[in-house]
Each structure stands twice: as structure tokens, then as C-alpha cells.
Amino acid sequence: MNSFLQPRAERYRYLPRERAARTALPWIVALMVFLATLGVAAGIGLGSGVGALGRDFRGEITVQIVEPNPDLLPRQRDAVAAMLRSDGQVSGVRVLAEAELNRLLEPWLGGADLGDTLPMPAMIDARLDRGADLDRLERRVRALSPGAVIDDHARWFAPIGTLAAVLAGIALLAAVLLAAATAAIVVLGTRAGLSRHHESIAVLHLMGAEDSSVAALFQYRLARTALIGATTGFLLAVAVILLVGRLLANIGSGLVSASYLPLWGWAALLLVPVGAVALALYTSRLTVERALRHSL
């Protein structure tokens, strides 16, 4: 019985040849794989981007010292910096020089030297150790400079992180739904094939062909179609991903450039077409065997 399953041409003509390209199936598989690959890429990209960004920001704080009195400002700034340097939970304390501040503000202020007319805040960057108590630190800073503000970036990072996570989830969910839709289409296509070739199958059946052999005929026919469709869809998706990657690189923003696919992401993407073909073959086999179970 085994040789019945061998992929030899003469054994697979038991069902009439049909031009697969004339049916919609390869195109549908291509479309599904295309969309699912993009979905998974977006999911992985956003997920890893958010993760990387979160890692960068975790622990980064900026202390902003606002003091209208220009004489008090440097004193408060130095006192706060000294306090931070001596604090056991803080490291990497760095006072931003006035020139640096001016450069940061230049796009908004147009390079005019407004340092005298406009009260400029002083900025101190620092890094908190893991598990540091931000509230305690804030109290100590306020004691030295009542108008100081600590920005731990979480405030603006949190909503972006949530949004990115939700988008990633939606993208992955879409990929799962596409897989379900593909399976449904394979079921319908296989059922149509079963009824189209009803007589041939009945004769094979009466001659003692096993259910698995009949299923193998369908799988063999489907394998080519699915492979062609999946490869096409995957290559198109990869082209799109590379293109989008370039565009993102040009933007240069932290989140989007961090969103670019990591290496393991590419490996995971490869699972989409492989999985689609496996899913199609398995679904087709199950459909045939279920249908035949109703015959004697």
C-alpha cells in the first residue's frame, strides 16, 4: 500500500489533472500568506521595538530645575547635582551645559541668544538603579529646589507602549484569523474536489484504496498549489517589509527605528509560509478522511 503514496506521476493521475492556476486557490493562499506575514512582521517589530525602547528608558530621569531668580539657579542646580551624586541609588549624573541646552532649544528659539531675557531651566540627566524609590528622590530634590520637576519619561512612554502592544496584538490576531480563513477555504475547495471526482473516488474505493491514499491524492495536488501560493505571498511580503524598513530608517525616530525586525523575527516570519502549506495539507487530509468516513 505504501508505494501507492509514492510521488510517482502515474499514481497521481488517478484524479483528473486540473490546472491549478485556473482556480483561485493559489492566489488566495498567496494573499493570505502575504497578509499574515505582514501581520506577524508588524507584531514582532512593534513588540521588540517597544521592548527595546522600554529598556532604554527604564531608569533614565531628567531633573529640571526652574527658578526665576537667575542668581539662585546655578546654586540650586549644583546642590541637586551634588545630592544626586552622593545618593546610593543614582549613577551617571550629568549636568547639561548651557551650550547644550541652547542647542536643544535652537529649533524652537531660532538661535537667538535669549538666555538673559528668558529664564532658562537647568537640566540634570541621571540613571536610577533598579528598584530605586522615585518618590523619596523627588522629596530630596524638592527640599533643595522647590520648583524642580523630575521627568522619568514613563509618562509619555506608557501610552505609546500600550498603543504599540495593542497594535502588535491586533496584527498577530489578524494572522491567526487569516490562518482560520485559509483552512476554511481549503475545506471548501477539497469538498468541491470530492464531489467533482466522486465517481473516480468511488471506483478507487471499491478497488480497495485506503482512505489515506485517497487523501494523499488530494494532498499531492494541493501541495504544488499551496507551495506556489505561499512562496509568492511570502516574497511579496518580504519586499514590502524591506521597503518599509528603509522608510522607517529615514524617519530616525527612536520607536520606529527600534521597531525594525530583529534576526529571530525573520526566522519567525519563515514559519508563516511553511505553516500555511502545512495547515493546507493537514486540513485537506482531514476533510477527505471525514468525508470518506460516511461511505462504507
Binding site: 505504501n2 508505494s3 488517478y14
Partner: peptide
């Protein structure tokens, strides 16, 4: 191929 069918189903070389 019609005549060969039972032999092929039976796995004959």
C-alpha cells in the same frame, strides 16, 4: 492505466 489500477493500488512494482 485503467487496467493497471488494481495492481498500483495493491502496491505492485
Amino acid at each position: 492505466d485503467n487496467v493497471a489500477l488494481p495492481l498500483r493500488i495493491g502496491g505492485v512494482a
